[in-house]
Computed example of a mutant assay.
Amino acid sequence: MTIKPAAGDLAGAVAALREWQRDDAPVQLHPGDVGWFWRSGAEATAAAVRTWRRDGRIVAAGLLDGPDLLRLAVAPGALRDEELARQLAGDLADPARGVLPPGKVFLEAPPGALVRDLLAEDGWRAGEAWTPLVRDLTEPVADPGLRIEVTGPEQAPAWSAVLRASFDGSTFTEQRWHAMAAGAPFADARCLLAYDRGTAVAAVAVWSAGPGRRGLLEPVGVHPGHRRHGHGRAITLAAAAALRELGSSSALVSTPSTNVAAVATYRSAGFRQLPERLDLYRDA
């Protein structure tokens, strides 16, 4: 029995992450997160992926989402698997194994995973708090009250402009939209634009993991010139409706817990707040 990390197992990682998106499983890395990262291109995305296999099957997968942050997912049935947890902890602690670089690093790992306990024992500390929120999609979603359009190549400049304006320091471009749209996860995704009296005011990307599985909103943005008019709630409702049409069982969105306005917006759109999830970090 062999468990070892491997970089670049992109197709395998996406397939495994789709399989793990169950409503009865912990919130963790979603194939849509990989799809959003794909805006950097297929080569960069493959280089950022880490997978751990046992008997040929992926049991854990990670995305190096930036130079010092690994977002880790574990197969739901292996969350408390001691052999896997000790392998992960050893790989995360040793920069020579190529999972994380030396120096101060951060880890997002699913709640309840044994690897979190082992890392805490080894001196890793609690870091940034995130608030996940979910909405059941069994019942129809209310009309958002704005005109909503699905973004294709012709609308990519407008979608990109709204998203770029929504986040301080964003470098998102039309070219990045096309790179994202060329990625495998985008086959189960939709980009939506909300319009208020003919002006594009909010944008969202939604990612399905397949029928009967949890879908993801990532990213969600409202143009700063059009905030405080309910557009955040409207685009969130539109996103939930789109995921329901794609067959998702529920919709997930996460935001830093310090962003209380975003939490309130998602709750106003029918999302239920889950317990906070804490990142872990290791000092240099």
Rank of each mutant, 00 (worst) to 15 (best):
G183T: 02
A44P: 00
A165R: 06
G183H: 05
G112W: 12
Y195H: 15
Q155N: 07
G215D: 05
W124P: 12
A60Y: 01
R213E: 05
K104I: 10
P153Q: 10
V134Q: 08
R50Y: 05
R228C: 05
I3Q: 09
Q175V: 11
D279N: 15
G152D: 15
R125C: 13
A241H: 10
D117H: 12
F172S: 03
L146E: 04
T265M: 11
A96N: 09
D9M: 04
S166L: 09
L192T: 10
G232R: 01
L216V: 11
M180R: 14
W130R: 12
E174L: 05
T173C: 09
F172E: 10
G169D: 12
T255K: 02
A181L: 08
A241D: 14
F172D: 06
L137M: 13
E174M: 03
G90A: 09
F167S: 12
L118P: 01
G221Q: 07
V74Y: 06
T258W: 09
P157Y: 01
A264W: 01
H178P: 06
L72V: 06
E19P: 04
P110W: 06
L133K: 09
R197N: 13
R97E: 02
S170W: 04
V141R: 03
G56S: 08
E245M: 09
L107R: 09
L100E: 01
A158Q: 15
G212V: 12
W124T: 13
Q87C: 15
A238R: 01
P256E: 04
T255R: 03
A73N: 03
A240V: 04
F186A: 12
G112P: 09
E108Y: 14
I58C: 03
I148V: 15
P31S: 03
E139W: 08
A78I: 04
P211E: 14
S170F: 07
D283V: 13
P185G: 03
S170P: 01
V150I: 13
A261M: 06
R50G: 03
D122T: 11
P144H: 10
E128M: 15
S248N: 04
E218P: 04
L193C: 07
P185T: 06
G98V: 04
N259D: 13
G62V: 00
P219G: 07
D117V: 13
L252R: 10
R244D: 08
A200P: 11
V141P: 03
P5F: 01
V206L: 07
I148Q: 07
R135K: 15
L84S: 00
G270I: 03
I235N: 02
R125E: 15
E174A: 08
Q175W: 07
